[in-house]
Amino acid sequence: MIPAAFPSREEIARLSAAMLLEAGCVAFNAREPFVHASGRRAPTYIDCRRLIAYPRIRSVLMDFMAATVMREAGAEAFDVIAGGETAGIPFAALLADRLALPMAYVRKKPKGYGRNARIEGLMPEGARVLLVEDLATDGGSKLSFIEAIRETGATCAHTAVVFAYGIFPAMEARLTEAGVALHALCRWADVLEEARRRGAFDAGTLDAVAAYLAAPEDWAPVTA
């Protein structure tokens, strides 16, 4: 069902952050930092894949995503919703249902047999495609998926995510240079603010996370 009312961007960000915390998607640890796929160490970790296990939360978040892309891109801006393998696939399916649009998904690499395809589902030439993923970090996977979409003759000028880090300006710059607008429900700053409001972590941990978000390249673990 297409949402008929659009909450404010600020309300969407606050409630999305609250739901990420409620679903246990957020972990903070300043003493034993997490190692991300990029090799970076950080006191923050987020796992948006957990959201698919929470029917009420995922339903509200997909309503928010539908409202966000309709407000920021347009009500008739897309012909196909595409999910990125693998985390983007369930969110793309849910959003495609909300917007009553066809869905496809994009493999990370060609299939390796049969048609050797990267695109599964229908993606007609000239189709306007919205790429959906769970989150955005450095933008690298988005650009790979977008390249595969564009190779079909379709266009892709927008990508939507539940969560974007929002602390690496180069990430959004890379997408902008590629002609792609990023639509995110919330960012780390929103999660930190909501975590403080809820008292979800101790004050020292939250202060260390705030220091990391202000200067991620310079951050060092808290020592005893």
Rank of each mutant, 00 (worst) to 15 (best):
R107K: 08
E172A: 08
A200L: 10
R71A: 15
G88E: 01
V69R: 00
L94P: 00
P221F: 10
G179Y: 12
G83I: 05
P7L: 12
L101M: 15
G84P: 03
A42L: 12
L135M: 12
G204F: 14
T159C: 05
T205I: 15
S141R: 01
D218A: 05
Y165S: 07
F145Q: 03
P7G: 08
F145T: 02
T44R: 00
F91R: 00
R197G: 12
L206S: 08
W188V: 04
D190T: 07
I2F: 05
A100H: 13
E147T: 08
I119G: 00
I167R: 00
V132L: 06
T44V: 12
E147I: 11
E177I: 07
I149D: 00
R31D: 07
F28D: 01
R98K: 14
L101N: 02
V162E: 00
T223N: 06
R49Y: 07
M171D: 01
F163W: 03
V180D: 12
R107H: 11
G179H: 13
M123D: 07
P110V: 07
V129F: 03
M70Q: 11
H36C: 04
V209A: 14
A127F: 06
E217K: 14
A189C: 07
C186M: 13
F163Y: 11
A66N: 02
C25D: 04
L101R: 11
F201E: 13
E177Q: 04
A37Q: 09
P43G: 08
V129K: 03
A170S: 12
F28A: 14
L175P: 04
A42C: 11
E147D: 15
A224P: 14
F28M: 07
A93Y: 10
A173R: 13
R174D: 02
E172T: 11
H158F: 08
D79W: 03
A17R: 00
E125N: 13
Y113C: 09
P124F: 14
F78V: 11
A5I: 12
G74Q: 14
A96S: 11
G199N: 14
I119V: 05
G166V: 06
R50C: 05
F168W: 09
D97I: 00
L135C: 14
R14H: 12
A42W: 00
Y45M: 08
L95Q: 10
A170R: 06
I146Q: 00
P110L: 13
A104P: 03
A17S: 14
R198T: 06
G88R: 00
M65C: 10
I46V: 13
F78I: 05
F28C: 04
M62E: 03
P216I: 15
G84R: 02
M70C: 08
A93G: 15
R40G: 01
A92Q: 02
P216T: 06
N29P: 10
L99D: 06
E133R: 04
E193I: 01
F34P: 09
V161F: 02
Y113Q: 15
R128F: 13
I2Q: 08
R174L: 10
M123I: 14
D207I: 10
R14V: 15
R14Y: 07
H183C: 09
G24W: 05
G166P: 06
L15K: 09
D218F: 10
I57Q: 06
V26G: 01
G114C: 09
V191P: 01
L122S: 08
E85D: 14
T176Y: 09
I89E: 01
V26I: 13
A93S: 15
A30E: 05
P33M: 09
